[in-house]
């Protein structure tokens, strides 16, 4: 079971979180024209890298904040966690 550092609450067990997918995907702006291709990429296309991956988790059984987690998908090592407003290098 992973041990995830919530930037608001500290280190907590994985059971308190739910997974939210790739954090690097950016939704096209609302009320702006978007090509079908860009939209399809946003809705459907995800990379599935082996290794470092920046992903979203929500601390559902805690502060309910969505957070960013940089994790190795093969070893599960967590390199860094951050608020969604912060950048992960």
């Amino acid at each position: 079971m992973l041990y995830i550092k919530c930037p608001y609450c500290g280190l907590r067990a994985q059971k308190e979180f739910s997974y939210g997918g790739d954090a690097t995907v950016k939704r096209p702006n609302i009320n702006e024209e978007v090509s079908s291709k860009d939209w399809d990429n946003f809705v459907y296309m995800r990379k599935s890298p082996r290794g470092k991956h920046i992903e979203l988790w929500q601390h559902i059984a805690g502060c309910r904040q969505w957070i960013k987690v940089q994790r190795d998908t093969a070893t599960h090592e967590i390199f860094q966690t951050a608020k969604v407003t912060e950048e992960i290098r």
């Binding site: 739910s18 979203l56 929500q58 559902i60 309910r64 969505w66 969604v84 407003t85």
Partner: peptide, 13 residues
């Protein structure tokens, strides 16, 4: 609830 929080916290803060 999670859906609403997602948009408020991440997409349209």
């Amino acid at each position: 609830l999670s859906h609403l929080e997602y948009y408020l916290q991440i997409v349209w803060p």
